[in-house]
Structure formats: structure tokens, C-alpha cells
Simulated scan of single mutants.
Amino acid sequence: MRGIVLAGGTGSRLFPLTKAISKQLMPVYDKPMIYYPLTALAQAGIREVLIITTPTDQHQFRQLLGDGAAWGMRLEYAVQPTPGGIAQAFMIGEDFIDGDSVGLALGDNLFYGFSFEEVAIDPTGGEAAHIFAVQVRDPSAYGVVEFDDAGQVHRIREKPEDPQSSFAVPGIYFFDPSVVEIAHRLRPSERGELEITAVNDHYLRRRALTVTCLPRGAAWFDTGTFTGLLDAGQFVHVVEARQGVKIGCIEETVWRQGWIDDAGLQRLAETQMSSGYGQYLAELLSEQTVRGGRR
């Protein structure tokens, strides 16, 4: 399975903050926003990831993330010339996907309290597509999962004015290789975009879609608005301060996955000591010595 992080778009909901910088490079407390979805894909066992950016922002992403070698990953880059919808990512990334299954994460989404580790074992849940649902207060701002009387998924609608459930589809999706062909066959919506909801609906009509509801204790943030960005930053700060563990720490994730060794983690720590971020990474190695291995 390969991964895509969609980090394009104008970020207009965050103007003027994002007039000169991509929203996916904005800080969510102590990390760039893109660290969080990248970590979610790494937790799912995905080591090869395509970062899709705007033409003007790509050099900044390359400067931040590099080629992924220091993390035991392979990162490639592609351009989304103009916003054309989430499903456009599969067309842009067609050569990168190269007939494999693919996990797509939106670059402005943050997850906590749910590991996508099991997705790495069976990436599509035994079906052709695997998406998630999470209960929210205002589902009309998202794609909404609607259920029938038997509790089965009945349909998925994009930003309905009259949502029939409070379960929204968060920005992480896993598909089999046929998603590329499906994306090519889509027609733009009234918004002029290739909607990810149309892709999900295609699999649903084939009875090939698995929907997993995130547990009640899980948290999901869409950080593409002022409130969402602030809420996510405060949430990360509180959890990290109370628990002493970091959320969305890609270095820790790849180390625990065994993609880099202790020496590799130490090198990453040494370059970031001044901010305290590196001290946290170094402490992971100390904890391992005390506890007798990685947790």
C-alpha cells in the first residue's frame, strides 16, 4: 500500500494567515500541520508517500520533509495546479500508485485516540474501500454517513443541508487500485470539483465499502479554519503536557515501526535539541533502556 497526503488548495478559509504560506505548514502547537496526517499513514504501515502541493509551496515542503530517507520512508512530490477536488489526487498520483492500494490523508486533518495500525494488516477491511465515520456537532460541513434502520450504511452525502445523521467522514481513506479508474470516470460536481464522496458512493453501490466508526474517545480535527486550528493546537498542548507523550511525532512513529534504529533516532534528536523537541526524542531512547525495549 502506498500513501498520498493532499496538501494543495489555497487555504482561503485561513486568510490572511495563508496568503504567504501553505496551511499544511502552519503550526499545530509544536509541529507543522502536515506531520499529523503523515504520522497517521506511517502508523498504518505506509512507508512510500506522495505529497501533493501547490506549485508555489512545493519547495517549502521539500525543505521541511526532504526525501524521507532519515525517517526510513520514501517521499515523492507532485503538483496540484488548481484545486480540483480530493478525488483529483488519485489522477495526479496515478503513476506513483502504480497499481497498488492507496491510503489518502488530507494534509489538514489530525487524529488522536485511534490507531490505523490494523489497516496495515488488512488495508481495505476485506473489501475494496475502507473509510471512517466520527460523530460531530455540525455534520452539514462534511460528507455525512447515513444509516438505515438496521444500522447499515445507506448512503453518503456531501455537505447536506438536512443531514440524517451526525456522523461525518474524516479525511483519511483507503482504497484498492481501482480507485484510479473510478476517479477518471467522475464528473465535476456543482462546485466544479471531483468529490471524494462520489468515490465512496461508487464503492458503496458495489457493496465494497467498509465504514468504521471511530470510538467515542477518539478525537478528529479539521484544522482548515481559525477555530479548528486553535482547537487542535490547544488539544495537542494539553495532552502532551498532561501525559508527557507527543501526538503526531513522525520520528517516534517510524522508530517504533522499526524503520530507523536507535542511532537514526539519536541523529534526528541532535538536530532539534534547541527547541526541546529533540530532547523528547532523546528521552525515548533513555526510556527504552530503563524499560528494556521499545513499547
Rank of each mutant, 00 (worst) to 15 (best):
I4C: 01
V5K: 01
L6S: 08
G8M: 09
G9V: 15
T10P: 06
G11E: 07
L14R: 09
K19D: 03
A20G: 02
A20I: 04
I21G: 02
Q24A: 10
M26F: 10
P27L: 10
D30R: 15
K31G: 00
K31A: 04
M33Y: 05
I34Q: 01
P37Y: 09
T39H: 00
L41K: 08
G45K: 10
G45I: 11
R47G: 01
V49Q: 03
T53I: 08
T54E: 03
D57W: 06
H59T: 11
H59V: 14
F61C: 09
R62E: 13
L65M: 15
L65S: 06
A70E: 14
W71D: 00
M73N: 08
P83F: 10
I86V: 15
Q88Y: 03
G93E: 01
E94Y: 00
I97H: 00
L104F: 05
L106V: 14
N109Q: 04
N109I: 12
Y112M: 10
F116D: 00
D122M: 11
P123F: 12
T124L: 14
T124V: 09
G126T: 13
A128Y: 05
A129C: 08
F132W: 08
V145I: 12
E146A: 04
E146T: 07
D148P: 11
D148H: 09
G151R: 07
Q152P: 03
H154D: 01
R155Y: 01
I156Y: 02
K159I: 12
P160E: 02
P160T: 08
D162C: 15
P163E: 09
Q164A: 15
F167P: 03
V169P: 10
G171V: 06
P177M: 04
V179C: 00
V179F: 01
A183H: 05
R185H: 06
R187A: 09
P188Q: 01
S189Y: 05
S189L: 06
I196R: 01
A198S: 13
Y203L: 12
R206F: 05
A208H: 05
A208N: 12
T210D: 05
T212S: 13
L214V: 09
P215I: 10
R216T: 11
A218M: 04
W220D: 00
F221G: 00
D222T: 01
D222N: 11
G224D: 06
F226M: 12
L229G: 04
L230G: 02
A232V: 02
G233V: 13
G233S: 11
V236Q: 01
V239E: 03
R242Y: 06
R242A: 07
Q243T: 09
G244N: 04
I247K: 08
I250W: 12
I250C: 06
I250F: 13
T253N: 04
V254E: 00
R256N: 15
G258D: 11
G258C: 13
G258F: 13
W259T: 15
D261R: 13
D261I: 10
D262I: 07
A263H: 12
A263F: 14
A263W: 11
L265F: 14
E270M: 13
M273E: 04
S274D: 05
S275N: 02
S275H: 09
G276D: 02
Y277N: 05
Y280H: 15
L281Q: 09
L281P: 07
A282D: 05
L284D: 06
L285D: 00
L285V: 14
E287H: 07
T289N: 04
V290C: 04
V290R: 11
R291P: 02
R294H: 11
